[in-house]
Design a protein around this nucleic acid. Sequence first.
DNA 1: CACTGTTATCTGACAGTGTCATATAACTTC
DNA 2: GAAGTTATATGACACTGTCAGATAACAGTG
Lengths: 193, 193
Amino acid sequence: MARPRIYDQQVRTRLLTTASAAVAAGGEQAVSLRSLASEAGVTTAAVYSLFGGRRQLLDAVVEEGFRRFAAHLDAAARTDDPRADLLELGLAYREYALAEPDFYRVMFGTPRTDGVQPDSPATGRPTFAVLREAVARALGAGDRGHGPDPEVEALRLWGLAHGLVSLELAGLLEGDADSRRLRYMGALRSSSL
Amino acid sequence: MARPRIYDQQVRTRLLTTASAAVAAGGEQAVSLRSLASEAGVTTAAVYSLFGGRRQLLDAVVEEGFRRFAAHLDAAARTDDPRADLLELGLAYREYALAEPDFYRVMFGTPRTDGVQPDSPATGRPTFAVLREAVARALGAGDRGHGPDPEVEALRLWGLAHGLVSLELAGLLEGDADSRRLRYMGALRSSSL
DNA sequence: CACTGTTATCTGACAGTGTCATATAACTTC
DNA sequence: GAAGTTATATGACACTGTCAGATAACAGTG
């Protein structure tokens, strides 16, 4: 071995945290390697050493965001009424997006081109997995073979939730926040299983 | 009057066209005032004189994008089967987004904060208007008062289409393009009126 | 004709960005 | 000690948006 690392896992975590805060505060464009590095007490070279560059750093931030998102959704209540749970999941979805809009935009706004492994935490599919489970529960394990396909239904609901939330974040929906929430719930309910 | 303008409507249009092409080719970050200006045969000052800055130029590009999008949707066939027309509209929606993904991302990815006039072409609500009409036709003019609210149904369908398309553009959906198209149609059909 | 006032465009500088070649520092092994 | 090896630091490069100040081009007036 030679010179010991000081750009280690701890620095990596610190950079990731700082970058996440910057994204949450002002979106992708608020992430400047220089300010990031100085906040973390290192030089910009650390980003290149630990991540490979700005792009990969942001990829890591997105990955982290999806992890937190999945945790937030996973925390939604699981009662013995799976239909109600599904609605609750939808509300949790919107809650997260509205709580950190810039983060949400970065997570879903950047095309994931870099070799996406199926079911890697980076892909956002684990998010989908939570939903898929909830849908499967709501459809019941009984009538497999006939009836609606859980996979398709889950995708439909994901699309609906993500779409409505995105439109809201884009500022394209009329009315105040309360009226928007009501319409969101209404759309979810009338589109449920 | 004083010195005659040469940064006129024509230059404005040229800049808009060039900027649109840049957005379509590589998203917002592909728009550099210097390259833009040199391509249009002017200096960067023209952008400030005609638009006010980069942000406003991009706003204008988005506005133009929404106009084209609305035109594309409006061109969808109108037969005497309003349900089928609605599905066709959904397909046209996805078609446009996949044809110009970077453009679509910029259109729906930037929060529209600048004093959005209701029903100004910039807001994307005219897009929604085309859909709303189609939904109203599909629901029939007969059963007003009871039955589903056209407004709510239209919003639900917009959310669904936009959501599924966005997820696809984000690279979050599995399968090849054909399988994705089929699932899109399936979700649309099963969520229709 | 020259001069003034007014407006529009051009120039150049400023402060900032990501990137990375090259120099330097810090360790292990001989 | 010296040599070898690897990690970090520095500084330069080529960009970027922005805009104050210099310059150019006209209309109107004397």
